[in-house]
Design a protein around this nucleic acid. Structure first.
Lengths: 163, 163
DNA sequence: CCTCTTTCCATGAATTCCCATGTAGTGGCA
DNA sequence: TGCCACTACATGGGAATTCATGGAAAGAGG
């Protein structure tokens, strides 16, 4: 996968009273290069108390991969069930949200809660996907390297917040 | 294959006294992008006590797929029988229902019963198809991952129901 | 004529769209 | 090199639309 199609960089944006957030322009440009949808897919991150986000084309590839797996493996009841579960997680537990001409999405209330997002959203590029964090939780999480936290601190200072 | 336009997201809608339910707008938009029918096809889900639903175009593709399977293994009488059964299930055991201008369908009584749907219908995107559950049964089913149940619980709370 | 079904209208809430503003970064030009 | 338009972005507010949902009216069938 070409480098110019990977999500990278970081930004800290405000979430307004209506739940709107600007998706950083540098992430949007990657989304639009990877496919031409002006939409992102949101999911609860499976390891962190944050959200994971990606473009619809990525979601479609995940689906295709699941289907191929199912057809290969013998149709044991166990394999069938696992397929059903993963499929539900991949689609029912995610939400596709469009961003408007100014690049904003509205964080669906459910996602906002699952990701514990409050008034600030920390965007972090992660290659095939990117993450959206509550910066406070990010700084608290013991699993996050100090260097990464420095980035978050920098973004907070830049805004005159944090300290 | 139509990798774009997959069903995703979740919603909990009311079923009124006449058996009417609003199909969530985000699912309708996928249906109409996949083909231009304002109709959904309902079937009993083959693994869960719920309904499976999709667009007419998907039904047609399933049929084509079954036919191809048959031609491949034409020699086997066993395969013939399986084909007949699956074809019957795919068509006789399904109902196609149109939704009106406000996006509502009337759940056919038989389907309502097969899916054990009462006064609430939980819609879950599942990629090529979506599911319609009685939220109570969903929460009871041991095969459903806890993360998925959280979503159902959230949708119930949102409505001031459940816990 | 009565019952069941489908169509139409009504409404409140939620969501989307559109325009306005501040700010920062870019490049041109004297 | 210092100043000034110009543009891209993030953000705010309010207006206009859409959505889910209830109920009434109209139509079909027995």
């Amino acid at each position: 996968m070409a480098l110019e199609h990977l999500f990278q960089g970081s930004a800290l944006n405000a979430v307004d009273a209506k739940g709107r957030v600007s998706v950083p322009a540098f992430l949007r440009s990657v989304i639009e290069r990877r496919g031409d949808a002006k939409t992102i897919v949101l999911a609860k991150h499976d390891a962190f108390p944050a959200l994971s986000a990606y473009d619809p084309a990525y979601a479609a590839r995940m689906h295709a991969k699941l289907e191929r797996l199912l057809e290969k493996e013998e149709t044991s009841a166990q394999a069938q069930l696992e397929y059903q579960q993963r499929n539900l997680m991949a689609f029912a537990a995610t939400e596709e949200v469009p961003y408007d001409s100014s690049g904003r999405i509205v964080l669906p209330p459910m996602m906002r809660r699952k990701g514990s997002i409050e008034e600030l959203a920390l965007f972090l590029g992660a290659g095939e996907t990117f993450q959206i964090w509550n910066p406070t939780l990010f700084l608290k999480d013991a699993r996050i390297p100090e260097d990464m936290k420095d980035i978050a601190r920098y973004r907070l200072e830049e805004r005159g917040l944090g300290a």
